[in-house]
């Protein structure tokens, strides 16, 4: 077995997820639990808040921490068990989507207990999140991917850079060798398609 050298926090931070997971596994296999724990802390902490915020949009506050923990555990266990497919961050995104859908599918003991309780006027807190249903969540998540899948590779790049990287149209245009007008047209088409996929009736107020 090749020798194992623990790395500094700075070095670990620079590693991508998959390289970090590989480091943690090697540290564990060499019995360096301190190094493994450090790497695991950077991995778990690094993803916790982003997953938590995704969960919070669709899951009642009382369950956010539990569901977030379950998602991260599931993704890390899959990575160490060899069951994950592709990049860790994409696997984590898929598990997040699936777990939130599961949350709305499975009846929970505490939900049953709350039904018909004191909060009769506004519904129970479990039901106050807009669109919080399995179908609603899957539809929402699928909408982005569905619309992106219909675009050409170049147009997908435009959307990723302009929308999700939040670059200016001029920056995207320069990077991809397009005109600003062309970038804006592609983004506008994407947003119209997205709103249509989300059930918009043609209102273009925003």
């Amino acid at each position: 077995m090749p020798a194992f050298e623990p790395e500094s926090d700075d070095e670990l931070q620079r590693r991508g997820d998959d390289a970090l997971i590989s480091y943690i596994a090697r540290a564990r296999d060499h019995g360096d639990l301190e190094a493994a724990g450090r790497g695991l802390a950077i991995l778990v902490f690094g993803h916790w808040r982003n997953v938590e915020r995704r969960v919070r949009m669709k899951v009642p506050a009382a369950h956010v921490e539990d569901v977030t923990g379950e998602i991260i555990v599931s993704a890390i266990q899959s990575a160490f068990g060899g069951a994950s497919v592709g990049e860790f961050v994409k696997w984590l995104a898929r598990i997040t989507q699936r777990r939130i859908a599961d949350f709305h599918r499975k009846p929970r003991v505490d939900e049953v207990a709350l039904t018909g309780g004191e909060d009769d006027e506004g519904g129970t807190p479990e039901r106050q999140l807009e669109g919080a249903s399995e179908e609603g969540y899957v539809e929402l998540r699928d909408a982005i991917e569905r619309v992106l899948d219909r675009l050409s590779a170049r147009d997908q790049q435009v959307v990723e850079l302009r929308i999700f990287e939040d670059l200016l149209s001029a920056e995207v245009a320069e990077r991809l060798g397009l005109t600003v007008a062309n970038v804006d047209k592609i983004v506008s088409r994407f947003r119209r398609a997205l709103r249509s996929a989300l059930g918009d009736d043609g209102d273009t107020s925003s």
Binding site: Q13, D17, I42, L43, F45, G46, H47, W48, R49, N50, V51, R53, R54, M57, V89, A93, T96, E130, G131, L140, R141, A143, I144, E160, I163, F164, R191, L194, R195, L198, G199, D200, D201, D203, S205, S206
Partner: peptide, 21 residues
């Protein structure tokens, strides 16, 4: 629909976001 669109965009952004320092 505005809310649904914003939610889908934020969700997709967070799914792509890199690990926090």
């Amino acid at each position: 629909t505005d809310r649904a669109e914003l939610e889908a965009l934020i969700d997709a952004y967070l799914a792509r976001a890199p690990r926090r320092a």
